[in-house]
Amino acid sequence: MGDERDGFERRLREARARQGLDKPAGLSGGLPTGPWGVGFRAGVEVVSALVVGIVIGLLLDRWLGTWPWLFLLFFVAGSAAGILNVYRLFNPRARR
């Protein structure tokens, strides 16, 4: 328990963090968390992963002539990646 009368310890900590001497406790700033914003972001994450998966599948199929098997495979992988993206959206840096 330090001398908390004038918050010296706290101000020292803040000053040290500002100068980069200490690691800041939490990462400042974050994504906006309104319900519409989060919902829209989740939708975009799913769709974009799905699109990337489908495009990779189609291109590989056209290259290797294996239509439709790689397309189906990468469709599933794309959906899984979309769900992974949404999971990371709600658990940022959880994997670390």
Binding site: S48, A49, V52, G53, A81, L84, N85, R88
Partner: peptide, 13 residues
Amino acid sequence: PIEVISYLSRPVS
């Protein structure tokens, strides 16, 4: 493959 797709989906999203 899932991680690669997830990584590639970043610029798209």
